[in-house]
Measured scan of single mutants.
Amino acid sequence: NITNLCPFDEVFNATRFASVYAWNRKRISNCVADYSVLYNLAPFFTFKCYGVSPTKLNDLCFTNVYADSFVIRGDEVRQIAPGQTGNIADYNYKLPDDFTGCVIAWNSNKLDSKVSGNYNYLYRLFRKSNLKPFERDISTEIYQAGNKPCNGVAGFNCYFPLRSYSFRPTYGVGHQPYRVVVLSFELLHAPATVCGPKKST
């Protein structure tokens, strides 16, 4: 009989979030998941669920729940959905087409922007091929755009693959930082360890 609440607040209220290319994953298990708490945590810009209804979450049980978190800019949030393409979905964080879970995003301009520009958040701009779903690539190998090998040196047709967002508070919403948490629900042929409040007794 599990009584402890799932530590969603640790994920959502973390002081620092990860850069999207090096997104963070927390496995959540053996706890009571009260998803209604999430609705009250922040004024969400996005709370979209796929393959599951957000209002039914509190009635369900899962084997595992994974919470992935990272920062992107406002106009990239739409890429965090099944079947999307674009720089983020292709080279940084890719959801599977049959994704079961929820994408939660909110504006973090007050936390993640600086007047002089916050350069701490990076994204991958160049990659030889698209990522597979939930693949994480943290390599910093020089990207070869031409025929000549780069031998690890940046220059003509040889690019450092990561680029930094420079978040400034005066930017338009599309270029402001957004914190994203992706909850993916895993149903294996194994005992369910993460249940809503109704199912945990």
Rank of each mutant, 00 (worst) to 15 (best):
F70E: 00
S184A: 10
G196D: 11
R16S: 15
F8H: 04
R16G: 11
L41G: 15
G101V: 02
D98P: 09
L95G: 01
D90I: 05
S108Q: 01
A14Q: 14
E135W: 05
G155Q: 10
G152Y: 07
G74W: 03
T15E: 13
T55H: 14
I138P: 07
N40C: 07
R78P: 11
T15I: 09
N147D: 07
L188Q: 14
R124G: 00
Y39Q: 15
Y178I: 09
G172M: 00
K148G: 08
V32C: 12
P177G: 01
R136G: 03
I142H: 05
C61F: 07
I138F: 07
Q84D: 03
W106R: 06
P82C: 01
Q84C: 09
Y123N: 15
Y119C: 06
K110Q: 10
N64G: 10
V65S: 07
S166K: 06
G152S: 10
Y39C: 09
N151E: 12
E76K: 03
S113D: 00
C158S: 02
F47K: 10
T46C: 07
E76N: 03
Q84H: 10
G83E: 09
D90E: 08
T63M: 08
F8A: 05
K199T: 13
G51A: 07
T55P: 10
P169L: 04
T46K: 14
R27L: 11
E141R: 10
G174R: 06
D9R: 11
S116K: 12
L60G: 09
K94H: 09
Q144P: 06
V20N: 02
F70A: 01
V153Q: 15
Y93L: 02
N147W: 07
L131D: 00
V37Q: 13
S69P: 01
L122S: 13
A105F: 09
L131H: 03
P96H: 05
G101H: 02
C49M: 04
Y143C: 02
V65Q: 05
N109E: 02
V194G: 11
N30V: 06
C61L: 07
F185C: 06
K128G: 12
V65R: 10
V11W: 08
V77T: 06
C150V: 00
S29V: 09
N87S: 12
K114A: 10
F156T: 06
L125M: 11
I104A: 09
Y91K: 10
R168N: 00
V115D: 07
L111C: 08
D112G: 02
N107Y: 01
P191G: 13
G86Y: 02
A33Y: 15
K114D: 08
R27N: 12
G155N: 06
L125D: 01
A190M: 13
F134G: 14
L60I: 12
Y171G: 00
F156M: 07
F45I: 13
F45N: 15
F126W: 10
C61N: 11
V52W: 08
V181G: 02
L131V: 10
I80Y: 01
F62M: 11
N107E: 03
E76I: 03
R168Y: 02
R127D: 00
Q144E: 11
C6T: 06
V20W: 02
G117P: 03
D97Y: 10
F47M: 15
K114H: 12
D112S: 02
I72H: 02
P43N: 11
K48S: 08
L188P: 12
A190G: 15
Q144L: 05
I104G: 07
Y35A: 10
F47V: 15
A192T: 13
V11Q: 05
T15H: 11
V181F: 04
V181C: 05
L57H: 09
A81Y: 04
C61H: 08
K148A: 13
D98I: 08
V103R: 03
F62Q: 07
F44R: 15
R179D: 00
N40S: 14
D75F: 08
I142S: 03
D9A: 14
V37R: 14
P43C: 06
P96W: 03
N1L: 10
I28S: 06
L131G: 01
G152V: 05
F44N: 14
A22L: 07
N4V: 11
S53E: 15
L60S: 10
I88F: 03
L38W: 10
S53H: 14
C61V: 10
T63I: 09
A14T: 08
K94F: 03
S36Y: 08
F185D: 04
V181M: 07
F126V: 06
Y35V: 11
G86D: 01
N157W: 02
T170P: 02
L183V: 08
F99D: 00
S200M: 15
N92I: 01
R16A: 15
V181I: 09
P149K: 12
D98C: 07
F17S: 04
S184E: 07
L5T: 13
R179I: 00
G51E: 05
L131P: 00
I28Y: 15
Y21R: 02
D59V: 07
F62E: 07
T140F: 09
D9Q: 12
I138H: 08
P133N: 05
P177Q: 01
F12A: 07
S200W: 15
R163G: 15
S69T: 10
L187V: 14
A105H: 09
E10P: 06
Y91S: 06
N120M: 11
V37W: 15
W106E: 01
T201K: 14
P7G: 10
D59G: 11
I80F: 02
N92V: 02
F47A: 11
K199P: 12
Q79K: 07
R73C: 04
R78A: 13
W23E: 00
P43G: 11
A18I: 04
F44M: 14
N118S: 07
V182C: 04
N130M: 12
I72Y: 01
P169E: 02
F8P: 05
V71K: 02
C158F: 01
A81D: 04
S113L: 01
Q176V: 00
S113Y: 02
T170H: 06
C195G: 08
F134Y: 15
N109A: 07
V153A: 14
K56Y: 08
C102D: 02
I104R: 02
V181L: 07
Y35I: 13
R163H: 15
N64W: 12
V194C: 10
G83N: 12
L187F: 12
V180R: 02
G51S: 09
R124T: 00
F44C: 08
R136F: 05
E141H: 11
I88L: 04
F8E: 04
D75E: 10
T55M: 14
L131Q: 02
Q176E: 00
L188I: 14
L183W: 05
P149F: 08
N157R: 03
G146L: 02
L41T: 12
S164Y: 06
G117C: 02
E135Q: 13
E141S: 11
Y39E: 12
R73P: 04
V181P: 00
V32R: 12
Y119H: 11
S19Y: 02
G172A: 00
T170F: 06
F62C: 07
D34T: 08
A67F: 08
V52Q: 06
N40K: 14
R168P: 00
C6W: 05
A89L: 03
N87G: 11
G146H: 05
L41H: 15
L122G: 12
K26P: 00
F99V: 04
Y121P: 03
D98F: 09
N107C: 05
D59S: 13
D112Q: 01
F44V: 14
N30M: 08
Y50W: 14
N30L: 07
T193W: 11
C49F: 05
A145I: 05
L41P: 11
I2E: 14
A154K: 14
N64Y: 14
S69C: 05
G74R: 04
I80S: 00
S29C: 08
P149C: 07
L131C: 03
F45C: 14
N151V: 08
P96V: 03
P43H: 11
F185V: 08
V65C: 11
I2N: 14
F185K: 06
L38I: 14
I80A: 02
A42C: 07
P177F: 02
S69M: 07
P197E: 13
C61M: 07
D137R: 03
G152E: 10
T170Y: 04
L187R: 14
E135I: 05
P133G: 08
I88A: 04
N13C: 07
Y35H: 08
S19N: 06
Q84A: 15
N130V: 14
P54W: 15
E141V: 10
P161S: 05
F70I: 02
Y50R: 04
D112F: 03
A18L: 05
Y123W: 11
N13M: 10
D137C: 04
L125G: 13
D59P: 08
Y123V: 15
G117L: 03
Y143P: 00
F62P: 09
